[in-house]
Design a protein around this nucleic acid. Structure first.
Lengths: 64, 64
DNA sequence: TACATTTGTTATTTATATATTACATTAGAC
DNA sequence: GTCTAATGTAATATATAAATAACAAATGTA
């Protein structure tokens, strides 16, 4: 699974913990998603996108 | 959860069963996702998008 | 009408995403 | 070097996505 969460999060200057609390998830879950070792739910993906000011394609669609 | 799966599927002329077999899911799962009563995994969303020739934003991003 | 296909819906089971807790590792500041 | 914040990682528990099976309700067609 390809994604650009880490880059978008760092552009915001946020830690994994800060992003996690904003999307009501845990730091570990964010970390695993950033590493591509997780298959997150659509709702969590959308919450992450909204907090980071990106769309689904921008963060999760390969080749975007 | 807003999505446009049903419309895209009917444009292809496929039944829920046909789409389901293409993405290795069940007819029931497709039906529930179309009705917005499910929170599907990202991988399943991506598989559906590829089969229907759409992107994540086109099928799952609200207001797209 | 009757018949077949598609979709809706429910109950139960299974697989897995996510939470929780804990401890290790890394990176930077001092 | 120490100290601290951030991140990695693993074990276990919990919530829920998804599968399976069965039957009902549509929908169209002869």
């Amino acid at each position: 699974m390809v994604n650009r969460i880490k880059l978008a999060r760092m552009e915001k200057g946020w830690t994994q913990e800060q992003l996690a609390s904003r999307v009501k998830a845990t730091r570990q879950t964010i970390g695993l998603i950033e590493k591509g070792e997780y298959n997150p739910s659509l709702n969590l993906c959308i919450a992450i996108c909204k907090e980071l000011g990106k769309t689904l394609d921008e963060l999760f669609w390969e080749g975007f």
